[in-house]
């Protein structure tokens, strides 16, 4: 049980960092950006490349975050800003176009083979459970990132501006808050977080273009469970999702129901993520409805 809990916390961390970026963006631009997943993958590759240059992990990740943030701003300028008048559904579809373009770009440049970060980790034992120093680093980084985001959003003028923008764009504009500049900043943050999350994910598993499929469902499931525009919700959603997944594949159902051991195969992880998302969406209170006029 402890192992399940530990695994959940680590997995939740990886997912949460990426999910938070989606919520952050959604709260300001009001559409679900599917290209975000590609930002995460791109970030993982940037970090890998920076590591290849001999840079230490923190520096490499920081560079990756900055580069990915800039990429996010460029995409906004080229694609989402011109399309800002369209309905959210149209922007969602367009974001898939961006996602496909990035997906192929990454695969074309870096190749389809999986790469592994070379990282030395120590293993610790907590009772029956195993945890590595990498796991600890991942969780610690996630917590630090969340704290920084929290401080930024609630203790700085920029953060207040961002929250005002999320609440009501026109009102924020009348208060002298520059919506375009803040939107760019928001995209930078979203991209940076995506890069960080992608790096963490790649560290714990492997770096390959296919990563996007592994991340897509759990991340969107986490965000939907918590509510698309809620950052805290994204974190909560990631935790709930991670717990649900890890319990589902960690519990010996066989032992409960009969005398033989039977575990749900781990390939069903994603199925559980999607099922959880669908269930939550179906049983959520009505307040999610857009109310007719689009």
């Amino acid at each position: 049980m402890l192992q399940i809990l530990l695994n959940s916390i680590v997995y939740a961390s990886e997912i949460a960092v990426i999910a938070v970026g989606i919520s952050l963006a959604y709260s300001v631009v009001r559409f679900a950006n599917f290209a975000h997943i590609q930002y995460a993958v791109l970030g993982g590759y940037f970090t890998y490349a920076a590591r290849g240059l001999g840079l230490g992990f923190p520096v490499a990740t920081a560079i990756s975050a900055v580069l990915t943030g800039l990429v996010a701003i460029i995409v906004e300028r080229l694609v989402f800003h011109p399309l800002r008048g369209l309905r959210p559904e149209a922007k969602m579809i367009a974001s898939w176009g961006v996602a496909l373009a990035f997906r192929s770009g990454v695969a074309a440049v870096f190749g389809g083979a999986a790469r592994v970060f070379d990282v030395e980790t120590d293993t610790y034992l907590l009772g029956d459970a195993v945890i590595t120093s990498l796991d600890l680093a991942v969780v610690a980084t996630t917590i630090a990132a969340m704290v920084v985001l929290q401080l930024l959003l609630y203790r700085t003028r920029i953060g207040t501006g961002l929250r005002a923008l999320a609440d009501n764009r026109d009102l924020a504009a009348t208060r002298g808050i520059p919506p375009d500049r803040l939107t760019a900043l928001m995209w930078f943050l979203a991209g940076a977080f995506a890069a960080l999350g992608g790096t963490l994910f790649a560290l714990e598993t492997r770096l390959q273009p296919d990563m996007d499929l592994q991340i897509l469902l759990p991340v969107f499931a986490a965000v939907t469970i918590g509510g698309l525009s809620s950052i805290a919700g994204a974190v909560a959603g990631a935790c709930i999702l991670s717990l649900a997944q890890n319990i589902a594949i960690g519990v010996d159902f066989g032992a409960v129901l009969s005398s033989r051991s039977w575990f749900l195969p781990s390939q069903f992880r994603d199925t559980i993520a999607v099922a959880a998302m669908v269930l939550v969406l179906c049983f959520r209170p009505r307040q999610l409805r857009s109310g007719g006029v689009r």
Partner: peptide, 29 residues
């Protein structure tokens, strides 16, 4: 389609995506 009445289109789009992936994963596994 069932949940569409209670969800805005961006959420429902995710449900439909999820459904297609659940089916594919079931067929794979």
């Amino acid at each position: 389609l069932a949940p569409v009445g209670r969800l805005s289109q961006d959420y429902w789009a995710l449900v439909s995506l999820g459904a297609s992936e659940i089916f594919r994963l079931l067929m794979v596994n």
